Simulated scan of single mutants.
Amino acid sequence: MLSILVIIGILIVIAGGLLFIIETFKMSIIWGIACLIISPISLVFVFLHWDVSKRPVFIQLVGLVFILFGVMAGAS
């Protein structure tokens, strides 16, 4: 049961990451390539284009919550 939570969380984080990359490429091809190659550029994109990137960021946060609950419940 606990590993299922972690797996679901990982899948949600991956889905949020894919949505984020899609949004960067919608903005411009340069943003998309830069975010794929240089990780800190993703943070710059999030701060400059919060209105576009907030949905994928929140989806990834939900996935992290699933992962944390699965790990914490497994540790106890």
Rank of each mutant, 00 (worst) to 15 (best):
M72S: 10
E23P: 07
S28D: 05
I38P: 01
I10T: 13
L19W: 15
S39T: 15
L2S: 04
V65Q: 02
G17S: 13
L5K: 07
L5W: 08
R55N: 04
M1E: 02
L11R: 11
V44D: 00
T24L: 13
F69R: 07
S3I: 13
I22D: 08
I29Y: 14
I30P: 00
G63S: 06
L5N: 00
S53G: 12
I22V: 13
I22C: 01
R55T: 12
I4R: 07
A73Y: 14
I41W: 14
V71L: 14
F47V: 13
V57S: 02
C35A: 11
I37D: 02
I7K: 10
F20G: 08
I41H: 09
M1I: 08
V44C: 01
S42W: 07
P40C: 02
I59N: 01
H49L: 09
S42P: 00
G32N: 04
M27H: 10
M27Y: 14
V6T: 09
M27R: 09
P56H: 01
L2P: 06
R55H: 09
I38C: 09
S28V: 09
L48Y: 09
W31I: 04
I41L: 12
F20S: 07
L48G: 03
L36S: 07
V65K: 04
S53A: 14
I12F: 06
G74S: 06
A75C: 03
G17D: 09
L18V: 15
L19Y: 14
S39W: 15
G63Q: 03
T24G: 06
L61E: 03
I29G: 08
F66Y: 12
L2R: 10
L48I: 05
G74N: 06
F20R: 13
L19A: 08
I12H: 04
V44W: 15
I59K: 01
F69W: 15
M72V: 15
V13L: 08
T24R: 08
L11M: 14
V65T: 14
S42E: 05
V13I: 12
A73C: 05
F69I: 15
V57D: 00
I8G: 02
S3T: 10
I14D: 01
S28T: 14
F45Q: 00
V57H: 01
I10W: 11
L2Q: 07
L61A: 12
L11Y: 12
I8N: 02
Q60F: 13
T24Q: 08
G17C: 09
P56Q: 00
S28K: 05
L36H: 08
P40D: 01
K54M: 12
G63E: 03
V44S: 00
G70W: 12
F45A: 04
L5R: 03
I29K: 13
I41E: 02
L18D: 01
L64W: 15
V46F: 10
I4G: 03
F69A: 12
L68C: 10
I22H: 10
L61D: 02
I4E: 02
L64S: 10
T24W: 11
G70C: 03
V62W: 05
V57A: 02
A73L: 14
A34S: 13
S76E: 04
S76C: 00
G74M: 06
V44I: 10
W50M: 02
A34P: 09
I59G: 01
I10M: 14
G9Y: 05
W50L: 05
I4V: 13
L19V: 01
I38Y: 15
A73V: 11
M27I: 11
